[in-house]
Every structure is written in C-alpha cells, then in structure tokens.
Design a protein around this nucleic acid. Structure first.
Lengths: 337, 337
DNA sequence: CACGCAATTGCAAAACTGTGCAATTCTTTG
DNA sequence: CAAAGAATTGCACAGTTTTGCAATTGCGTG
C-alpha cells in the first residue's frame, strides 16, 4: 500500500525554485503572487503532475468540500434522478458527493452518518430513513450541515425540504370527480414513509370533504410488483373502484399492467389511474400516466445553495424549511383534461 | 466556516487520562492496548462523540479509503443499478464511494479523474467515457488503481472488465432464425460506445455467417425516445424487418411501444424484438423483452475484490482483464423458446 | 539619492493522525 | 524474592496543506 506518495507542493517548490508557500498561494484564489512566480509554479506543477491534496487542505481549513448523500434503493428511477441532480449541482458549486447506501435495517442510517463524520463531510443530505436524534445533534454541534429531503421532522438546525404531498393529492380528487369517477381507491406500499403517508391522508381527507369514501390498500415495498398485487386486491372487490391513486409511479405502472393484461380493463375508459414522481417511464406510451412531478432540479438547487450560503450563524435561519410544489402532469390515464 | 472543529483524539486522551497514542491504538485493529485503557478510551470517546478523522488518517497512511466512481447519465436504469451494486460492495469492503458526474463534453472525464487525484482516492472506477492516456498514466504512477468497465482499451495497468457483447449478440441470430425470422435489423444509438458497437458488429457478423444481411440503423442518444424514432425508420422500409435487435433495453422499450401503438404491429407474432441489459423494465408485463443480463453484481464483485487484493506489485497481474458472460434471459418478445 | 509605501516572499505554526523506539509495568518462573 | 520475558505506554516525528507575521523587494517621488 505504501507506494511512493503523490507529488507534493514541496517538490513543486523545489523544481520551481520558490518556497512551499508560493505554491500554495498560486493555487489559492485571491492570494498575492507575482505573475512571474505563478508562471514558474504552474509550469513545474504541470510537468510533475501536481494536484493539491484535498485531504490535507480539508484538515487545515476544517472544510473538506465533501457532501455525503445518504440514500436507500438508489437503483430506483426517482431516487437515481435525484442523485444525479444533486451530484451535478454539487460539482457546479465546487463540492463533491460521497455516496452511502442504506438498507431497511435500523442502525443503517446512523452508520452512514458516522461515516460522514469520519470523513469530515461539510454536510449530509438524507434522502431515506431517519437517523437517531442524538446523532443529528452531534453533526450539528460539530458544524456539519444537514439536509432532510421529504423526511417529516421538526428538529431545528437541519434544512428540511418537503413537497406539498397532501395538497397535491387533494387536488387530484377534483380531477377524478370531473372525470366522472365516484369509487375512489388509494394504492400504497407498506413502507410508511412520511411523504407516502401524506399523499394517502391528503387524498382521503379531500375525498371525505367531498363526501366520498376511499378504499385504501397497502402492500409490500414501494415498487412495480407491489402495484400488481395491489391491483389484484383492489380490482377483485365487489365494488370495483373506477379511480385509483397510486402512491408512486412505479406502483402505478404495475397496477396498470395488471389491470390491462390480467383483468382486461381499459384505461382510462373503465378505470382512471394516477401516480406520483413523474419518473421517465410515466411518459412512456404504454403508460402515459397522469402524475405529479417531483421538482428534482429545484430540490437539488435549494439544498446546494443553502449549503453554499453562510447563514449558519444567523439564528433566524437556523430553523429553515422549504416547501415545494408538485405540479400535476396531465396524461391520458385519466379521462378528460 | 471556521466552526469549532470536531473533537480530536487529543481531547479524548485528556478525558480518559491516557496518551493520545493510546486513543489511536484503541481504534487501530491489532494494536497493543490493555483492556483497561481500551475501556476508558471507548467510554470517553462515546461521551465526547469522537470519530477518527479519516482525512488525517488518509494523509498519514497514504490510503484514503475513497474510491471514485466516474459515470455519465447516472439516472438511467442500468447505470444506477451498477452504481448501487458497486457502492454497496465498496461499503462492505470498508471503503467509500465518491460520485462524479460526467457529461458528453470532451475534457469531462479528465476533470473527474483530476478530482479523484485531489482527494487521493485509492482507486477510480470508470463507467463512462475514456480519459486521456497521459492522465491514466499519472494515476497509475501515483499508485492509484484504475478499473475500466466496458471500455475497450488495451492499456496495461488498469483492470478491464468487459462483457462478451459480440458473442452474446451472435447467439441471438440463431434464436431469431429458430423463430422463423429472416429479415434482421439492428437498432443502435449514435453514441458509438465500445460495447454498443461490439453488439452491432457481433450481430452483423453472425448473421453474415448464416448468409443473412442485417439492416443497421443508428440514431440519437441511447434511450427510449431514440427507440421510437428507430422504429419509425425501420418499420416503414419497403422490406419491413421481422426481427429487431435493439442495442439496449431502453431502446427496445421505445421501439416496442412505437411498433404496437403507432404501427399496430403484434409482438412477437409479426415482429420479434430483443434488447440488452435486462433492466427492471424489461421484465414488466407490457414489454417482457428477451434480453441479455448485465451481471452487475459480478462486475461489482470483480472490481472490488481486485481493489482489495495486493497484486499491484505482481507484474503478471499488472495486465489484468476480466471477461464476463451476458446470459440470455428468455421472455415473450421472441416467438418460441 | 533617500524615503515611504505597496507588493511579494519565506518562516513557522497549526490542523490530526499512525507508528517506531525506548521506557515502563506486569507476569511468570526458578 | 529475583530475574527474564512479555505486554503496554508515551514521546516524538512524519505526512501535506494554509496563513499570520515579519522581512524583503520593487517602485515612485521629493
């Protein structure tokens, strides 16, 4: 392992005939270096293949430039698109993303957060699960920023980015009614994520306000297969629903496939379906599912700009929460429009 | 920015009433510490919330534990599943993944690799694009390992993991023939990736060996939309193909959707279709596309175990190349079976 | 030419860890 | 109880960077 180490500023300094400091200053924007020495340093660095050591730099400045992304099921379309957006914006802001996988097990997020602390990440962005409160407090106490995306939590300190899941779900009820639907159903997974539950409750509440009951069914993980199972359960009821809101586009895809191929139901003629997330597949012509768009770019922008801003000191900004809208994307899985 | 820094080993040592070395040794597996001092140190560390600083550790050991993943279009199903697999296996091996986005622009991969050098990554895994040769040489010279996945390159030094794209594509010809197809076509993107071209050439060559001509069409990026366009081009030919091999499952999905919904062609009765990658959507009942499975777990395992092994010194292992099989996954987009 | 001012440069300290080496303590055996 | 051997502990250094402070250089002006 102990290979000959990377080339250091010392070596560059010697080759350029200047001091270490000059090398450092050359690569520090805004530092005072004469054009002549800068030229010599850059030249020597080029020849030797010198790159500033960000480990040492982070040690010195107490600012590593690393942002830790904590996420489970990253192979899923919505998650991966969010990872892509965040990673890109971090890069544009001169930072770099560290990726940590979590699974459903309990201590998993805690372990991930500990990893973030070990590498002295400037911030952690949590896309899945919730860490223990004492651990988040530790992060904050040590000056590490925290961003919680779609995690309902009222701690002070972290930036909390949330969607108007409930409100969006509510708007869908009127859309279903306008399409002439009366027997509403909600197809959810058993994950119990805050956003999933908000969609469910928002939908049920809005329906109730209109004097309608909603059949709620929950099954398995949040994915395509669960959608199929949910279809089998909901479409074999004696009072078969004529409108189903699926908690997720993946669920919606599974639901629609089962409805069409197994029950020979025509969508949207006999059954209206809606989803959430606006994943790429929702736009595929086999599905064309009406859905709510996750504003991934906006989410990423909010997170990254907050990380870049210096309002950690500002006590007013300590309790920062952002609520974004999920716009309805109208496609042909609901009648009318 | 200059918050009160994280708690250091020094503080733990003072609280535990031992020397800083004792703290270090407590967290170094295999070091000599008495059970008594270990207890005191662990206790103090627990109370103070101490975590070893991996930046300083990496500086000292010349081994950061960081592995850089360089990848473009990470929102795509195949890419994201590979990222998931690699990230997970790296974690299991005690390392951590750094994620760098690249776009199509030319210097993009070089920039990413420079970032890997700055953070003194132990290794870089390149999933997309090819860096400049001088830069890979610089990486290797500095003891950074390099893994190229599905990049055809014959440099010595990096581990090269490749699929038998051409051979797999060849096997497909006989499957098409057995289904009674005679007018073969290949639907490719314009990306020109080594693996995509290998599939194309392997398919064309095997067909030629059977005395059959293949209509090759290329268009746009490697995605669903391109599949639709390719369908419009291939299915309006005077001699309409009765078997199409799509370079990617995403292309296949777009192709099938256009074929069915736009041209009212029945699959597999009037047209056989195959894809590549075995993404999750390929198994969805709207597609059920016969395809070749990317062995993502095996790829990840090969990469990570090689990174863990100490055969960098071994000159015989310097030139290490792995070739994996892509197994045919039979579904109902091809007749018979 | 001498002087003052601005710009540049170098020294040294600080950040945090792992580890070789010597010194100390503990255990065991005669 | 003495002594040898083993285990443990502490000191000090190395590794790479940034930056405050002091010293030096360069330049314009009286």
């Amino acid at each position: 392992m102990s290979q000959k180490p990377f080339v250091s500023a010392q070596e560059v300094a010697e080759r350029a005939g200047v001091s270490r400091s000059a090398v450092s200053r050359t690569f520090t924007p805004g530092a005072s270096v004469s054009p002549e020495t800068r030229r010599k340093v850059v030249e020597a660095a080029e020849v030797l293949g010198y790159h500033v050591n960000h480990l040492a730099r982070g040690l010195m400045l107490n600012e590593s430039g690393i942002v830790c992304l904590i996420v489970s099921e990253m192979g899923t379309p919505y998650r991966s698109s969010l990872i892509r957006a965040v990673t890109q914006q971090l890069q544009d802001a001169g930072k770099i993303a560290m990726l940590v996988n979590t699974d459903r097990s309990d201590g998993s997020v805690d372990l991930a957060l500990r990893q973030a602390i070990r590498y002295r990440a400037d911030a952690s962005i949590i896309l899945s699960g919730m860490p223990d409160k004492s651990l988040t407090q530790l992060c904050l106490k040590n000056g590490q920023r925290l961003v919680l995306i779609n995690r309902d939590d009222d701690q002070e300190g972290p930036l909390r980015i949330n969607l108007d899941d409930a409100a969006a779900a509510g708007r869908l009820v009127t859309a279903f009614l306008r399409a002439g639907c009366r027997r509403l159903a909600f197809a959810n997974s058993e994950a119990g994520t805050p956003s999933l539950m908000a969609r469910e409750h928002g939908f049920v509440a809005a329906a109730k306000a209109m004097g309608l009951e909603v059949v709620v069914e929950r099954y398995g993980p949040t994915g395509y297969e669960s959608g199929r199972v949910l279809a089998q359960r909901l479409l074999t009821l004696s009072e078969r629903p004529d409108a189903v809101f699926c908690a997720t586009d993946l669920i919606a895809c599974g639901f629609m496939d089962a409805a069409r191929h197994q029950f020979s139901i025509s969508i949207p003629d006999q059954l209206c379906v809606a989803g959430f997330d606006d994943i790429e597949q929702a736009a595929w012509s086999s599905y064309q599912v009406t859905t709510f768009a996750q504003p991934v770019e906006a989410i990423a922008r909010e997170a990254v700009t907050w990380l870049g801003s210096d309002d950690a000191e500002d006590p007013a900004a300590r309790n920062h929460s952002v609520r974004l809208n999920a716009d309805l994307v109208w496609r042909s899985s609901i009648r009318g429009g």
